[in-house]
Simulated assay, not measured.
Amino acid sequence: MVAISTGLAQPVASHVFGCGPRKVVAVHCSLAHSGAWRGLATILEEQVTVSSFDMLSHGRSPDWDGKGLLQLRNAEAGLALIEAENLAKEGPLDLIGHSFGATVVLAMAQMRPDLVRSLVMVEPVFFSLATAAETSDPEALEALRRDHMTVRETYLNGDVEHATRLFNRAWGAGHPKWNDLPESARDAMVRSFPAVMACDTQVYEDMLGVLTPEKLARVTMPCLLIDGGKSQPIMHEVIRALAARLQDVTCRRIDSAGHMLPITHPAETAALLQGFWPEVARSEA
């Protein structure tokens, strides 16, 4: 583990997996940590070197200090990691993000497009795209609103653990069950949950503005969007709406997977990356 602090209001813990020539920076989902990439990186270890960091309030990084927008703060941490480790010394690199981490890598790509060769967003939670005017699945939108309101009301009523459990039930892998998780894992998720709730303005309202035409115009690199066939239906709506706004985009689905596909289906995810990256190389030629 290495602590990255230069230029940051708070340091973050970083980790490296693999030893391959392709440089990749990966950002994990909410309630997880950088170790979530271990399975995928192990499969690709001879092809890629994956650098990741624990988002604020996650893993071994400190609790968020309550200042600024977490989407931006974590994007700044990712860029600081690239600079501290000199990861772009041989040219642009690849970004991968999962769930809220996918919203972070989009912000990183917009802030420093010169550093980014390709952008992979796995189940990006840009719920602000799933509006009543755009969705082709109104029931999916209503289910999202209903489930989120239940979680948020539980949280605001002071039962953080139960709210975390409800959130994990909706977006986690579904196994092991909450009561079967080690106490340390449950405690870690409860610790992270206030930061997750603080991100509502970014995922439901796009407070940072990463989905504006001006910001999206900066995303000229090849993009891969991945979702799971068994994920919440709203994710399919988000993918469709986001793909329509990107200049160079490929969409792929892992039919047997849910929202946590980089963790539950690392081999299938690796296969999609192995199919996508050669296309990136050809587009550069």
Rank of each mutant, 00 (worst) to 15 (best):
44 L>I: 09
158 G>H: 07
242 L>R: 05
171 W>D: 04
105 V>W: 00
86 N>T: 13
240 R>M: 10
262 P>W: 12
155 Y>M: 12
47 Q>C: 10
174 G>R: 01
83 E>N: 08
191 R>F: 03
54 D>Q: 05
96 I>Y: 05
143 A>N: 14
195 A>K: 00
71 Q>D: 07
109 A>H: 00
194 P>A: 09
156 L>H: 08
285 A>W: 07
144 L>M: 13
198 A>L: 03
84 A>C: 11
260 M>V: 14
112 R>K: 14
9 A>I: 06
58 H>Y: 07
190 V>T: 01
247 Q>W: 05
258 G>I: 01
158 G>W: 09
166 L>K: 06
195 A>F: 03
8 L>V: 08
128 S>M: 10
9 A>V: 06
210 V>C: 00
101 G>H: 00
237 E>S: 11
210 V>F: 01
80 A>N: 04
160 V>G: 01
173 A>I: 06
72 L>F: 09
70 L>S: 02
155 Y>I: 12
155 Y>Q: 08
88 A>G: 09
194 P>E: 03
170 A>T: 08
188 A>F: 08
187 D>Q: 10
52 S>L: 10
16 V>I: 14
193 F>I: 11
285 A>K: 10
54 D>S: 10
233 P>D: 14
71 Q>M: 11
43 I>Y: 12
58 H>I: 11
152 R>N: 09
231 S>W: 14
204 Y>T: 04
190 V>H: 00
114 D>G: 15
245 R>F: 11
171 W>H: 02
30 S>Q: 04
85 E>Q: 14
133 A>H: 09
82 I>K: 04
69 L>D: 01
120 V>N: 02
248 D>T: 14
99 S>Q: 03
193 F>N: 01
250 T>G: 01
76 E>S: 03
265 H>I: 00
241 A>S: 12
46 E>Y: 08
108 M>W: 00
73 R>I: 05
3 A>L: 12
101 G>K: 01
27 V>M: 05
108 M>V: 02
92 P>T: 11
168 N>H: 08
3 A>K: 15
255 D>W: 11
173 A>M: 07
38 R>E: 13
232 Q>E: 12
276 F>C: 05
17 F>L: 10
8 L>R: 00
64 W>E: 06
30 S>A: 14
201 T>F: 01
159 D>I: 08
145 R>P: 05
222 P>V: 07
5 S>V: 08
226 I>H: 04
251 C>F: 07
94 D>W: 02
282 R>S: 13
121 M>Q: 06
190 V>L: 00
51 S>E: 10
187 D>N: 13
20 G>M: 10
169 R>P: 00
143 A>R: 15
35 G>K: 11
265 H>V: 01
279 E>R: 12
114 D>V: 10
